[in-house]
Write a protein that binds this DNA or RNA. Structure first.
Lengths: 224, 224
DNA sequence: AAATTTTTAGACATGATTGTCTAACTCGTC
DNA sequence: GACGAGTTAGACAATCATGTCTAAAAATTT
């Protein structure tokens, strides 16, 4: 029986560290091998922990998987909102600042880390655990999209862009940014910084041709 | 020993039919459960065939998987080029005809059938069978993209579009068409005809704002 | 330093799956 | 009606993974 003192008392130190390394290792293994192919012994070995400890912490392969998905969702979201907070709010040069933002976005959201994990896991195991990934869908892409949409709306209101439907614009922006990243990502190929930069530049150029302020003759009659 | 008569002699009739149904069943099971989770007994049952027959035909789980990937790649490609052949070559109304094409494209390429199978299999098992999916990558997306790019180039040459880089335009077109299909596809949700239509319309509108001929001031000097 | 909790290594039972083998069966052909 | 290729059901060994258990070791708290 715990004596009920501070929540982060000392015993949790090594405990929490092990828990984290188990989650990390499990994420890697689940992602590499899929749920069915994942081997608990391998997870334990990769986490530098005995198998029994894995069971002590998470009780079950199923529950371990759930813990991994939840943890990754949280990390991924935190990361995403960090990047989102660097969205250019009052840019001197829309194109260059939006491009720089797109680079940050693609670098951290898609290529590295949790984002890819989750996408793959959803794709592979979504059928078997619908409720888990339903949460991800609502809390993940949904919130990011609308946050990004709000940023675009502000940019449009400030006169830097010409956007009817900010939600649509946000989704299309993300789609354009990802155009040339899909295949390398699928094959786990490293994406060089230059590639990222060039790709972002292409995406933003097209995006601005569609949504830029100085896009030819003013639309015939928008509000009258 | 076969008597060496017609290649499609009668004995092969049931044979070929079984082979096909095995491939189909295996595709479904591999796609649902992943390679590790796929159960040969289940494949046999779903194909209406005994397990031994599966082994007679393909010898191995590994080779069965390879056969499935190859077959699906071929079917998917054939289908894709069928749809590609309906690309509007000399449209009276670019927007409406391009939208109709986008509907056909998203309906057959992404939602139904082999395309989704392959994407998921590549995502899930690409690490384990790189050489298999390398072929898919070259023969699948690569060829489709360049074929679509050629069509766009023709459309631009005929004066209906204003495109610098047709390959890029083709990839961006596909990305825009898929914007709102990703999530429903991921979750295997049915996509209604109206949704498809509306989505295609949005995609094409944005695409044409970026690449349309009458997009504001005529580009400085294209051909004189 | 003693006590308590966590971790470890390994054995263990259980169940599932792969791939082989054999004997019986079906079907179209001669 | 018999032949032969292909098919079937089921038994079978071998492998492997999950999850439990136990006794010993390590780390922490009092």
């Amino acid at each position: 029986m715990k004596l009920g003192n501070a929540p982060d008392s000392l015993p949790t130190r090594g405990h929490a560290a092990k828990r984290r390394s188990i989650i990390d290792a499990a994420a890697a293994v689940f992602c590499r091998e899929g749920f069915a192919g994942a081997n608990i012994d391998l997870v334990a070995a990769e986490a530098g922990v005995s198998r029994q400890t894995v069971y002590n912490h998470h009780g079950d392969k199923e529950r371990l998987f759930a813990a991994v998905v939840q943890e990754m969702t949280e990390r991924s979201n935190a990361h995403a909102f960090d990047v989102l907070s660097t969205f250019p709010d009052d840019p001197a040069d829309v194109e260059s600042e939006l491009t720089a933002f797109a680079v940050r976005l693609s670098a951290s959201l898609m290529c590295r880390g949790e984002g890819g994990f989750l996408r793959k896991l959803v794709e592979a195991e979504g059928d078997r655990h619908p409720e888990l990934f339903e949460v991800w869908r609502r809390e993940g892409p949904g919130r990011i999209w609308s946050a990004l949409a709000a940023r675009f709306a502000r940019l449009a209101y400030a006169g830097h862009l010409d956007i009817e439907d900010p939600d649509l614009a946000a989704r299309q922006f993300l789609a354009l940014v990802n155009v040339d990243l899909k295949l390398p990502l699928l094959f786990r190929e490293p994406v060089s910084e230059e590639t990222l930069q060039a790709n972002a530049a292409r995406a933003v150029r097209t995006f601005l041709r569609a949504y830029g302020r100085d896009r030819g003759p003013p639309p015939p009659a928008r509000e009258a």
